[in-house]
Simulated assay, not measured.
Amino acid sequence: SKEKRSDCKLLVLALCINKEGFIRYSSILEGNTADPKSLPNMIDTLAKRNPSRIKDTLVVMDAGVATEENLELIKKKGYNYLCVSRTKMKDYTLSDDNKSVTVMDARRQKITLKEVKTEDDKDYYLEITSPSKAMTESSMNRVWRERFEMELQRINDGISKKGGTKTYEKVVERTGRAIQKYPSIAKFYQISYIKNEKKPKQMLRVDWEIKDLSAMESGHGVYFLRSNVRTLSERVTWEYYNLIREIECTNRQLKNDLNLRPIYHQKDERSDAHLFFGLLAYWVVNTIRCQLKREGESCYWTEIVRRMSTQKLVTTQGKNPLGETIEMRQCSSPSKQAKQIYDKLNLKH
């Protein structure tokens, strides 16, 4: 697992949702199945349940399952595909008309779309430039740099510390593990090993420097969409790909908002029941969010709960002159934000 937990078994929950985010089909798969390997069977299963003209079917997928093998398989079956390119393209030119289209993402930030040409020119490629994504990637890069350099500093501290790792081979091995831990950032570093001249079997220190800072920062916020359909415009291609955002939103709500995982059960039937109740809860959540989205409100479930939790049910108890206990229960007045949600759902305050 991603958490490196060898003591816990994995369950894979597969969901098929429509564009409003409602679940059409669900199934539980083996935990040791890689995403790319499960894609062909999923497509065949869905095609049997939803008979349609194969040539009009577009399979939209993220980079995780868009292997060359899967793309070839999808084409052989007669389907079309749209995905994120798994590699950052280098040898490409802009299309002849040099046209760029500007669209807005979910946060109302600008994104630029440009059609590009490649050497083999087999597929249709769209360059996506997102300033907000560039900021996120730059911030993540800075974090990885700090962590990688901290690892290298610990190695140097161990060399100078009593009882620390000093043997040349052991230090190189330890540095190799740090490089393996942060491969995306380590490739930009030049690492030098300085031997201890007085004690040749020991390391004196490990030096490092960044080879090319501009290379590290280049390409942030730029990625490519790839499709075998050339008749779609830039805007339509982007809108089709954005259907995948609803799936990501579903995952976020199940994992974070509804705490579907981890599952603390020892038996299969209890784990199945846990998932079943989680999906029932998701139906309630998505019904409310779908109604709110039609009224222009697209906040997540945690934000809806936060706004509505400002209204409380207050219980007041007291005794009358006869010694009887009187209990009154009243709702507090909803805040302005809570009233807006009530109004959009056509509910009483």
Rank of each mutant, 00 (worst) to 15 (best):
T93Q: 10
T93K: 12
L94Q: 06
S95V: 00
S95H: 03
D96L: 14
N98S: 07
K99I: 13
K99C: 13
K99T: 14
S100D: 04
V101N: 09
T102V: 15
V103P: 01
D105K: 08
A106C: 09
R107L: 10
R108L: 11
Q109G: 01
K110A: 09
K110F: 06
I111A: 04
I111V: 15
T112L: 10
T112W: 03
T112Q: 07
L113H: 06
K114N: 12
K114A: 09
K114V: 05
E115K: 09
E115C: 03
V116G: 02
V116A: 02
V116E: 02
K117F: 08
T118G: 12
T118E: 10
D120I: 10
K122L: 14
D123S: 09
D123I: 03
Y124D: 04
Y124N: 10
Y125E: 03
L126G: 00
E127G: 11
E127K: 15
T129A: 08
P131E: 02
S132L: 05
A134F: 00
M135L: 15
M135D: 13
T136K: 12
E137A: 01
S138G: 13
S138W: 02
S139E: 13
M140V: 05
N141R: 11
N141D: 09
R142P: 00
R142S: 10
R145S: 08
E146Q: 14
R147C: 09
R147A: 06
F148M: 01
M150F: 02
M150N: 06
